[in-house]
């Protein structure tokens, strides 16, 4: 009985090893199907996976309007102080009421870990992850970015 189990063990081991070698042998003989990207050569036709995260950007529509209300939910969600939101008070021209609005959305790319928590936290979908990744610069200060475009304002009806 012991001997039967012993031989069965050896047979099972050899069979599973052969299965693995058959798989890798198939890959070796069919090396036309390459899964890696030949990056600097195919910059124009680069195919990035859908969930690849490169940097945080704020989406602006054709009227230079964004959806950021300055609620600072993203700033609170960020684990390492990558985002800093500076707010201001706009005065409404008709009613004369003061209204909180975003002045500058500061984004420190050099601190960002691409964890996606800010995008998850945003209640209005104002920011998203872009797929750009060639971020190297000669001066570190260039990595501190201002995400809202100059002269942009919040889109009507978002709040």
């Amino acid at each position: 009985m012991f001997l039967k189990q012993y031989i069965q063990d050896i047979w099972g081991a050899i069979k599973s090893l052969a299965t693995g070698m058959k798989r890798t042998g198939y890959y070796f003989t069919h090396h036309k199907e390459i899964i890696t990207q030949q990056y600097p050569d195919n910059r124009d036709t680069l195919l990035l996976p859908e969930r690849f995260k490169g940097e945080v950007v704020m989406t602006h529509d054709e009227n230079n309007e964004h959806a950021c209300t300055g609620c600072t939910a993203c700033e609170l969600a960020c684990p390492n102080a990558t985002i800093k939101i500076i707010t201001k008070f706009d005065v409404d021209a008709e009613t004369g009421k003061k209204k909180k609005a975003i002045d500058t959305f500061v984004y420190h790319l050099e601190l960002c870990t691409m964890c996606n928590l800010c995008v998850e936290a945003c209640p209005t979908g104002a920011i998203k992850m872009a797929q750009t990744f060639e971020h190297s610069v000669f001066d570190r200060s260039q990595l501190t970015k201002k995400l809202n475009k100059p002269g942009s304002k919040v889109r009507a009806g978002v709040e």
Binding site: T24, Y27, F28, H31, E33, I34, I35, T36, Q38
Partner: peptide, 10 residues
């Protein structure tokens, strides 16, 4: 080269 071909790389 063998390792690259087995791992579907170049």
């Amino acid at each position: 080269k063998v390792s690259a071909w087995i791992q579907i790389r170049l």
